[in-house]
């Protein structure tokens, strides 16, 4: 039911190694290049953010674990470019021609970068799905955590929070549903809530009885408790 990226609560990863604020933004030059190539390719408009997240999650567990952060980005980008038909496998092996690409008119130009990054991509949309839950209401997350439209598909309900009971803290409005949007089923916007869970609801041995975890959860991830 799960994929390797869904690691919240996992044991065995060792200490976190903080760095000072003065560390370079990109530890290696190629890190910045990987980020920039990925963003620029995204502006070709052939996929959305949910598709690109799912592409990283679909790296094989072996690759996901051994690849560094930007290696995941660049490798899943290569996969996406082929899957979306922008490039072919022959392009990667040097067998394809260098003729101008039909999408080249969409290429992001240097002078457009500032405006394109500043514009962003809001995820809230009008929706006719009414809010089913009120602030303060008890809700339970669905179990098991899974995309209900595609087996093994993209979802944003972490496995550690499935089947857990919490309380609605905030209604964020109606947002694009990643489970649909990652798989070509449209944006299917629906109410999105911040739901607060006592740590004792999620972990066998919570550190402190007062501690809590909040997750942003779509309405279809929730049922009344």
């Amino acid at each position: 039911m799960t994929r390797v990226h869904d690691m919240g609560g996992r044991f065995g990863d060792g200490p976190v190694r903080p760095k000072s604020d003065d560390e370079p933004v990109f530890a290696e030059d190629w890190h910045g290049r990987a980020l920039a190539v990925t963003l620029a390719a995204g502006f070709l408009g052939k996929w959305n953010i949910d598709v690109s997240r799912h592409a990283r999650e679909r790296l094989s567990p072996k690759d996901y674990a051994r690849f560094s952060y930007y290696e995941k980005w660049i490798s899943s980008l290569a996969d996406l470019l082929v899957e979306s038909g922008v490039l072919t496998k022959e392009d990667f092996t040097g067998a394809a021609s260098d003729d101008p690409h039909p999408l080249s008119a969409r290429a992001l130009k240097a002078e457009s970068v500032a405006a394109a990054l500043a514009k962003g991509g809001p995820a809230d949309r009008p929706s006719d799905v009414p809010a089913r839950f009120k602030i303060g209401q008890s809700v339970r997350t669905v179990h098991p955590a899974a995309n209900r439209l595609v087996d093994g598909g993209h979802t944003r309900l972490p496995i550690y929070a499935s089947g857990a009971t919490g309380k609605v803290m905030r209604l964020h409005g109606t947002h694009v549903l990643p489970d649909a949007n990652a798989h070509g089923f449209g944006e299917a916007p629906e109410p999105l809530y911040a739901v607060v869970f006592p740590a004792s609801e999620l972990w066998a041995d919570p550190e402190n009885p007062k501690d809590e975890v909040v997750l942003d959860l779509w309405q279809s991830y929730l049922e009344p408790a």
Binding site: A41, D99, H101, S104, A110, A114
Partner: peptide, 17 residues
């Protein structure tokens, strides 16, 4: 293939750096 412009990549890196 004309799908990305290296000058745009420099600009993205400069923005976040």
């Amino acid at each position: 293939k004309g799908l990305i412009d290296p000058a745009a990549l420099d600009e993205i890196i400069d923005t976040y750096q």
